[in-house]
Amino acid sequence: MPASLLVRHAVRSDYEQWLPLWDGYNAFYGRSGPTALSPEITRMTWLRFFDAYEPVHALVAESDGRLVGIAHYLFHRSTIAIEPVCYLQDLFTVEAARGQGVGGALISEVYEHARQAGTPRVYWQTHETNHTAQQLYDRVAERSGFIVYRKVF
């Protein structure tokens, strides 16, 4: 892990450094060019991080004054628990920072915020071809065995 790594909540002045990470995350999952998210979605996502009524949160990993990673998570209700659960929706680090503990530090910070919120679990998903991330995930969590289905309208 970089010696100067700081994981913290995003602040409004992070936008210019957050945006390339957000775009990189979306490009990794095929959302670029003609399939890119609309600017309205990006704008609304950013604004939600600073709206006290929204359950969506953003963490950033900063090293030497530069953002090198992001994690977005949200709390939601469940039919199998009284407490809300935490969904780690987005995790991304710049390529140069991969394998240096940045992703693990972001996940650890999400775990800490979940504990503080009284959440019984944190979960996330990744694409089956994302073998690099799976190496990290297999060290910090256990696989649930569930298969994700979706229908896009």
Rank of each mutant, 00 (worst) to 15 (best):
4 S>E: 12
4 S>P: 06
7 V>N: 09
8 R>A: 09
9 H>D: 15
9 H>C: 13
15 Y>N: 07
16 E>R: 14
16 E>I: 07
16 E>Y: 12
16 E>D: 13
20 P>W: 02
26 N>I: 04
27 A>Y: 04
27 A>I: 04
27 A>H: 07
28 F>Q: 05
28 F>G: 06
28 F>T: 05
28 F>W: 12
30 G>Q: 09
31 R>F: 15
34 P>W: 12
35 T>D: 15
38 S>C: 11
38 S>W: 07
40 E>D: 14
42 T>L: 14
42 T>Q: 15
43 R>T: 13
46 W>Y: 11
46 W>M: 11
48 R>F: 10
49 F>I: 14
49 F>R: 10
50 F>I: 12
51 D>T: 13
52 A>R: 15
53 Y>P: 01
54 E>P: 08
55 P>E: 03
56 V>Q: 13
61 A>E: 02
63 S>F: 06
64 D>K: 03
67 L>M: 05
69 G>Q: 05
70 I>A: 09
70 I>M: 14
71 A>Q: 08
71 A>D: 11
72 H>T: 15
75 F>R: 04
76 H>Q: 12
77 R>V: 04
78 S>H: 08
78 S>E: 08
79 T>H: 05
79 T>G: 04
80 I>M: 08
81 A>P: 00
81 A>G: 03
83 E>H: 04
84 P>V: 05
85 V>W: 02
86 C>I: 09
88 L>M: 11
88 L>V: 05
92 F>R: 01
95 E>F: 00
95 E>K: 03
96 A>F: 01
97 A>G: 02
106 L>K: 07
113 H>T: 09
113 H>P: 01
115 R>A: 12
116 Q>P: 00
117 A>H: 10
118 G>M: 09
119 T>Q: 06
119 T>F: 11
120 P>D: 06
120 P>E: 05
127 H>C: 06
129 T>K: 12
131 H>K: 10
134 Q>M: 11
138 D>A: 14
139 R>E: 06
139 R>C: 01
140 V>H: 09
143 R>L: 04
144 S>G: 12
146 F>W: 08
148 V>I: 08
152 V>H: 13
